[in-house]
Design a protein around this nucleic acid. Structure first.
Lengths: 240, 240
DNA sequence: TTCGCAAATCTGATATATCAAACTAAGCTG
DNA sequence: CAGCTTAGTTTGATATATCAGATTTGCGAA
C-alpha cells in the first residue's frame, strides 16, 4: 500500500457516473430509454472505456440494464420491489431514531433542528429544495444516532422509490404533514424516548407505502411489471 | 430493449470477480496483499480489461482498495465500521423475524426447519458446512417473511464482519448456542408471536457484537485502524 | 555504510481496435 | 402484398496500446 494517498481529480469515469446517475434518478432520462455508449463518449470527449465503466457501475445499482450484444437502457422501475425497499428503509430508520433517542447527543439534535428549520421555510413549490431538506433531516437523525452509515445504506436502497415518486404528483398538504411528522420524531428524540422515536419514524415512513398505490395513469412502459429481480435477471421483454 | 433475453455464459469479468471475492472473503487473499492485474490476466488467460472490471466492482464493495497510479490491494478490514454493520444487520433481521411471524407461512416455516435440521447434524469441526447451514437459516427466515431481498442486503452488509470472524477462533460451544438461539427464533415464528421472534433474533445477533472484542493477538496489519471510510476515502497509510 | 538523486519500472486510467452476437431493414420468393 | 431470408449495422465484451504519475532501484558521493 502507498505511504500516502495523494489528492487527485475525480476520474472521467466517476464524473460520468455521477452525472448519469443524477439524470436517471431525476428522470431526465426516462426508464427504458436506450443508452448509447459511443454517443456519450463523444459528448464527454473521452473514449468508450470510462463511459463503459460508469455504465457498468450503474448497472450494479439497478439504474441501468445491460443486454449483452444487444443494448443498454435506462433501467425500468421495479415496481414490485418497492414495498420491500420501503420496509427495509423503515426498519433501518426506526433503528436510527431509537439509537438517536438513546444517545441523546446535543450536537446531533441541533443538526436535526437545523434541518427542520430549513424545511419549515422551504418554498412549498420548490420540490427540489423540499426534497433536499427532507433528506437532511433523515441524515441528521442517523448522524445523531452515531451511525451515519445507516443513512448511506438507506440512500442506496431507496433510489428506485425516489424515481417512482418523481412520477407521481406531490399531493396537496404533504409538506405540512411531513413537517409535523418530523417534529414528532424530533420531540421524541429530544425527550430521550427511544420507543416513541422509533414508532413515530415508522409511522412517518409508512406514509411512503401509501403513496405507492397511485400507479394508474402512469406510463406502464416505465415499470418492470412481473416482479422481483433475482440474481441479475433483468425485467420483462419490451413490447413491440 | 431486446424482445427476448437469451441465455449466455457468464462474462469473464463476472467469473473473475466471483473467484476473487471468494478468495478475499475466505481470507485466502490476506488484507493488504497487493493485487497484480497483469498477473491475474495471465492466470485467467484473458486481457487486463475484464480483470480491471472485476477489480473495480470489488472496490465498490470495499473488498479491494485502489490507489491510482500506485497499486491495488486486498482491502483492509474496517474494524471501526463493524459494530455499525452488525447494528444494521440486527435491525434488518429483527424485521425479517417479525414479518415471518406475522405472516405465518407454512412453507416458509418448513424451509426454516430444514435449515435447522442441516445445522443440527453438521459436523462440529467443519466450519464451512456450519457457516452454510447458519446462512441458510437466516435466508429462510427472510424468505418466510416474504422478503428475500432483506437477506440479500444483509449478505452485502455483513461481508466485512465475515472476514473478521474468519480471523478469530471459533469459540467452544458456539455451535450449540447458535442452534439453541435459532430454535428460539423458530418457535416464536411458529407460535406467530412477532415481538418474541424479533426480540430473539436480536438477542441472537447481539452475540456477534460480543465476538468483536477479541482483536488482541490478531495481526494489526489486517485492519483499517482509525475509522470510518467516508466517501470512498480508503484507509490509513501503510507503515514503513 | 549511508544518503540522495535520477533513471528504470510498474501501475491504473484511458484510448483505440477487434470480435461475435443480435437487431434492422432491404430484397427475394411465393 | 405478406412472409422469409440475408447482408449490413449496432452493440457490449474483450484485446492491445499508450500515457502520466508513483514507486523502486542502482549508483555515486559523503
Amino acid at each position: 500500500m502507498p505511504s500516502r494517498v495523494p489528492e487527485r481529480p475525480p476520474t472521467a469515469s466517476a464524473v460520468i457516473r455521477q452525472e448519469l446517475r443524477a439524470r436517471i434518478v431525476s428522470l431526465a432520462m426516462r426508464p427504458g430509454e436506450p443508452i448509447n455508449e459511443k454517443a456519450l463518449a463523444r459528448r464527454y470527449g473521452v473514449s468508450r472505456t470510462p463511459v463503459h465503466e460508469a455504465v457498468l457501475k450503474l448497472a450494479e445499482e439497478g439504474l441501468v440494464a445491460i443486454f449483452p450484444q444487444s443494448g443498454t437502457f435506462v433501467g425500468l422501475i421495479p415496481y414490485a420491489d418497492l414495498p420491500e425497499t420501503i420496509i427495509i428503509r423503515r426498519s433501518l430508520e426506526e433503528t436510527s431514531a431509537r439509537l438517536a433517542a438513546e444517545r441523546g447527543d446535543a450536537a446531533g439534535l441541533a443538526a436535526i433542528d437545523r434541518a427542520m428549520a430549513v424545511l419549515a421555510v422551504a418554498d412549498k413549490d420548490d420540490h427540489e429544495a423540499f426534497h433536499q431538506a427532507d433528506e437532511a433531516f433523515h441524515a441528521g437523525v442517523a448522524r445523531a444516532a452515531g451511525h451515519p452509515g445507516i443513512w448511506r445504506l438507506v440512500q442506496q436502497v431507496k433510489v428506485q422509490v425516489d424515481r417512482f415518486r418523481r412520477l407521481t404528483l406531490p399531493q396537496a398538504g404533504r409538506l405540512d404533514r411531513v413537517v409535523a411528522e418530523h417534529g414528532a420524531v424530533r420531540d421524541a428524540i429530544a425527550a430521550r424516548d427511544p420507543e416513541a422515536a422509533a414508532r413515530r419514524m415508522g409511522a412517518h415512513l409508512d406514509g411512503l407505502l401509501a403513496d405507492l398505490g397511485g400507479i394508474a395513469g402512469l406510463n406502464p412502459d416505465y415499470f418492470d411489471g412481473p416482479g422481483r429481480r433475482d440474481e441479475g435477471e433483468q425485467g420483462r421483454p419490451f413490447p413491440p
